[in-house]
Computed example of a mutant assay.
Amino acid sequence: MPPQAGQRSTRPPDAATSNNQPHSVSRCKTDKLRREAYRLMEKAGVRRVRLYDARHAVLSWMANNGVPDTVVSAWAGHSDLSFIKRIYVHPDPRSLQAGSDKLGELLAP
């Protein structure tokens, strides 16, 4: 039986259907992926960061720089746009300043 809205399927995804990836993409264990990413970070001479944090940073950057929510959602593998907005959209200093300026205009005599 398919999962109800808001529930996850208990059936593990297969490589052919997971995240709309081509059939040639194979799933790998997260520890192998993490070790390879850390090796590449070291080779590139960049600071080691958790893949979760790198993913969050990229998706947040996309969400805060005009990439449509539907595209950010597709990259993240989420179908719930409100989740994308809650998790990845953060106010930046320029946006906060613009809001403050607008509030000042509205409250000025």
Rank of each mutant, 00 (worst) to 15 (best):
V89G: 02
R94V: 11
R47N: 06
L59E: 01
Q21K: 07
P93F: 02
G45R: 02
S9V: 11
D53W: 07
V72R: 01
V67Q: 03
P2V: 02
K102N: 09
G45A: 01
K43R: 11
A5V: 14
M1L: 15
A16M: 15
R8A: 07
L59G: 00
N65Y: 04
L59M: 06
Q4M: 07
E42Y: 10
R50N: 14
A98W: 13
S100L: 13
H90G: 08
D80K: 02
S9I: 15
S26W: 04
V89Q: 02
H23P: 12
K102C: 14
D101W: 12
H56G: 03
L103V: 14
W61R: 13
Q4D: 15
G99V: 12
P91L: 01
G104H: 09
D31F: 12
A15T: 15
V71T: 13
K43S: 10
R94T: 13
L51D: 09
D69S: 07
S18T: 10
V67D: 10
L51I: 15
S100P: 03
Y52S: 14
L59K: 01
R27Y: 10
A74G: 09
L103E: 09
Y38H: 06
D92T: 15
K43L: 11
D80S: 05
G104T: 06
R8N: 13
G77A: 03
N20M: 08
Y38A: 04
N19M: 04
H56E: 05
A54W: 08
A37R: 00
A44C: 13
L81R: 02
D53T: 15
K29G: 07
D31G: 05
P13A: 01
S82Q: 12
S82E: 11
E42R: 14
L51F: 15
Y88K: 00
V58N: 02
R11Y: 13
F83I: 05
V49T: 07
D69I: 06
S60R: 05
V72Y: 01
K102F: 10
V72S: 00
S18Q: 08
R48V: 15
H78M: 01
V71P: 01
M1G: 09
V49M: 11
Q97C: 11
P13L: 03
L51V: 11
